[in-house]
Amino acid sequence: MRINPRITNRLVRWGLVAQAYCTVTVLVLIIGIIFFKGFPQVNFAFIFSFPQDMGRHGGIFPAIVGTIQLALLSILLATPLGVGTAIFLTEYTRESTFTKLIRFGVESLAGIPSILYGLFGFIFFVIKLKMGWSLLAGVLTLTIMILPTIIRTSEEAVRAVPRQLRIVSYSLSASKWETIKKVVLPAAMPGILTGIMLSIGRAVGETAAIIFTMGSSLRLPLSLMESGRTMAVHFYILAREGISMEKAYGTAVVLVLSILFVNIIAYYIMNKAIARYS
């Protein structure tokens, strides 16, 4: 028996709508559960005090500071490298074997799972370069890990700057670098910032690559050579070792909120840029 195509059409439509809503429901559930269970744990003391008894009591202050240190330092290193690479690829060369090779490198880096970054950072920075479990080893590993994201978003942003703007700048007696510095980079800035924001989000949420390079010391890292703990690592240890469900939920709220916050800023910048160019 052949089913009437119009009935199929309607059935499919409802099926798709149902699945789409299902997906949204999952998202709302995930965030809802975290917030519902976690918010009661979060207060001034939780954020600004040190953990006690492995995190069973007290707050998560060192983890917050560790997260900020790690994210900011990695961004500080990865941004010039990434934006520089993007500028080189778009402004200084035509498509060639060399650019293809670099693109291959970037794509490959982007595809490597974080545990392999952890493995590499562990053997190279921690062991061979004798950094030990330290903020520095974590920062360097994470820098390499977020580099592809920054390169790709920056390249897209730089490419989107109209060619005419460059021509005008040259006609006004600007050199190549002056044109890039004064015209191309400012125009591409929203796109570049979006990439940076997304990378911060990734840095804040990362665990596997961090735990084997930065370690998981509960003390506040006061120098680059000291070990420390990010919120994600702290959360993982609280949850996995069953130290305290309440504190785990509390940490999760702060963690998810900071990532949401960073993502929303990225979205805001992107939409503003899109509005400006269209």
Partner: peptide, 24 residues
């Protein structure tokens, strides 16, 4: 509404997924 929601889902750290998996 949906596109950003899905991208936010991508931003949630994997440890959080793991944790909710354990608990629920």
């Amino acid at each position: 509404l949906l596109k950003p929601a899905i991208e936010l889902l991508a931003g949630i750290p994997s440890v959080v997924f793991g944790f909710l998996g354990v608990v629920y």
